[in-house]
Each structure stands twice: as C-alpha cells, then as structure tokens.
Design a binder for these strands. Sequence first.
DNA 1: TAGATTGTTAATCGATTAACAATC
DNA 2: TAGATTGTTAATCGATTAACAATC
Lengths: 211, 211
Amino acid sequence: MAQKKNVSMAVIKRLPRYFRYLSDLLKMDITRISSKELSKRMGITASQIRQDLNCFGGFGQQGYGYNVEALFNEIAKILGVDKQFTCIIIGAGNMGQALAHYKNFEKRGFKTIGIFDVDPGLIGKKMNGIEVMDMKELEDFVSRNHVDIAMLTVPYEDTRETAERVARLGIRGLWNFSPMDLKLPYDTVIENVHLSDSLMVLGYRIKEIFE
Amino acid sequence: MAQKKNVSMAVIKRLPRYFRYLSDLLKMDITRISSKELSKRMGITASQIRQDLNCFGGFGQQGYGYNVEALFNEIAKILGVDKQFTCIIIGAGNMGQALAHYKNFEKRGFKTIGIFDVDPGLIGKKMNGIEVMDMKELEDFVSRNHVDIAMLTVPYEDTRETAERVARLGIRGLWNFSPMDLKLPYDTVIENVHLSDSLMVLGYRIKEIFE
DNA sequence: TAGATTGTTAATCGATTAACAATC
DNA sequence: TAGATTGTTAATCGATTAACAATC
C-alpha cells in the first residue's frame, strides 16, 4: 500500500518506536488514539507523527484519530514483522549467546536457525535449543537453508573476512557488532550496533552536563 | 577546549566514528591527514569534517591538514577517553556477561567495578574477574564506591523500577538495554541500546531493497 | 614563493513544525 | 450539527554542503 518511495532514514528509524508505543497501548486496551495524545506520550510533535505515518498511507480518520489495533498492524506490516526473517548467528561467544537467548527477536519475526563458531569447545553445544555448528559448515548450511540475516559477533580481527564470506553467500542482511564500518561489494544491507560508540556518547553527555 | 556549547547531537554522535578512524590511521603510522583525504575514507564530505571539528577548536593547519596523533588526542579528550568512568552492570544474564567480557570498554576509559543480580545461582560467580553481588548490596556498594554509569541488562519488567533505584542513588549515566524509553525525574543521562529496534530497521531495509 | 588546505561565512538542502481546509 | 482531528501544504528551523579569503 501507499508510496513507500523516498522515505527518509529519519522516519524509518522512528518506526520501531511507534511499533513499541502502539504495542503498549494495545496491552492497555486503548482502542483509539489521536496524534496529539500519542505525541504527548512519546515526547514528539503531533505534526511529526502525522507526517511520518502519511509516508505510508492515510491510516487515520478525521475527528476520530487512529484505531490502535489497525495502526499497529499497519506498522507491523511496514516493518515486516508479519513476515519471517531467518537468521544465523556467527560467533557463539558471550554476545552471540546473548542474541541466541533474546526472546523478543522471534516474537518480531526474526527466527534464528543456526549458530556458528570456530571454537571446538563451543561447537556441538546447544544455545536456546540450537546446536552450534562448525564455521566450516557455513557454506553448506546456507546452500540448504534460506538465510535472510547474519548476526556477526566475531572478534574484531575476523570481522571483515567473515562479512565478505557471508555476503558472497548471498545473505542480504548483516547485523554487525564489531566497532568497524563495513563496506562490501555486494547487495548486502548492513546495520551496525556500535556498542562502544554508544557508550562513548554516554560518557560525553555525562561530562557535558555535570562538569 | 574551545566553546563546547551548543554542539548538536548529530555532531556528537559522529565523534566516536572520528575517534575510530583516527585510531586506525595511527596504527597505520600515518602522521598527517587532510579533511579531503579523511572524507574519502569515511564517506562523508570534507566540509562536514571541518565543521564538526571546529565545534571544539581549530585543530588543523592551513596548507598542511591535521596531525593525526594530535587530533586523535583532542578527540579522546573531548570524549573523555582520557578520564576514567566507573561502571556497574545490573543484570548478570547473557547480555550482562557479554558486557563484562567486552575488552574495548576498559581501553576507552570505562571500568566495570561491580556486577549485580538477584539470581542466587549467579551471585558469587566471577565474570571477567569480578564477582557478581546480590542486588540487595547495591545501595551499600554505591555509597562506598563512586559509580558513574549503570549498565542495565535486567528483564523488561524490572527495568523501570531498577532505573528509578539507580537514579535515586545519584548515578549519572544509565545505559539501557531494554526495549523501553525511560523517563526519570532525576539528572540522569540515558543512552539506549534498542537492539530489536535496530534489527527491525535492518528487516525493513532488506524488504525495501529486495522486494 | 606557490600550492595546499584550513576556518568560516554563505547557500542549499532536508527535516520538523505550524497552520488550516477537508471531513468524519 | 458542532467539535475534533486528520491529511497536507506552507513556514521555519537546523544541518549539510559549497565557496573562498586567510594563511601555513
């Protein structure tokens, strides 16, 4: 539905937040909400909410507002939560294990179907019911199973090579946890989680406010 | 030094990225860099680099460019990497353990001095050399040790209460890993790591590009 | 000196906010 | 109907980019 062309990253990054707030409203059994009321809850302007939503379609009704459930479903559809994304985790260290156990992902359509590592001490162990496989089996596994997303939690020095390898296999999404910007000569979407960047911004902001 | 007033979040969020690129240049033994050359490496405009840096001071030299080591040190200082931030981890589950073992943080001035959990099965265990303490000891610990930052990796339903408790203790920085926006009636800086938000944006971008 | 490159001002671009006619 | 609230256009604000004089 609607023109999803030319939607800016600023808007896209707000979508999960709308999704969360609408999910909360549903849990509170609130059936309708105006942009004004939602703006108060979210701490943004009502104008912005209406502009954002209208990038994807006219989901509201004059004089009434938005039906919470309908809007929630629309945003879920826009984000692809109604679809299933298959994921593999590469690197079964602490971070990989944390991701393997994160319950929320599956609820939002991201299903982990494989975990890989090079460490013989980890291979064969089960994490959240999924056995850790040898990295040597990666190519074979991906040829036998459709994989949308690779979650990359390997050591810094292995990141670039592993990313290349993953992209060569035709995996379309890469969720990168290394403090490194990846550039790939393939049609692979990269989303970074730069934890130390986030922590440094926190450090800066603490300094700023309190000194 | 220089006027650190009115620096926008857009600029601040780019600082860790400059920090990383300069660190890489140092490792490559590159001693000087022009904004033009750095812009090529980083994939942003030279103009933006010069504008960003001049929020904090004139670190370059006409006709020469920037001395990599000097600029690196300046940005380290701006970010507070030269200072030490003391941190505690609240929630010793998989994510808490991952954070406890992350080597990069200490290198950048963030030192974990305590880990807390409510689970008797975890209390007393050592993680990266630090013993997990009972949450009951939190208040006592914080009164005896200066704590800058609390890293919050507790279950969703405990997040709000724990955040309140942490803020009441006068801890100035809160690094929140729950998919929830916190609002506190205290002078506490909150930085969120919304992993599922990031993953959903990745899902959206995959859909957009490939469908 | 001549060439290179900064710091900084001005121009452009994009995102946010305000306003309001349309309409439920 | 009257009141409320949307969808959308116009105005504003802020961030990015371009340009160039200053100067190493």
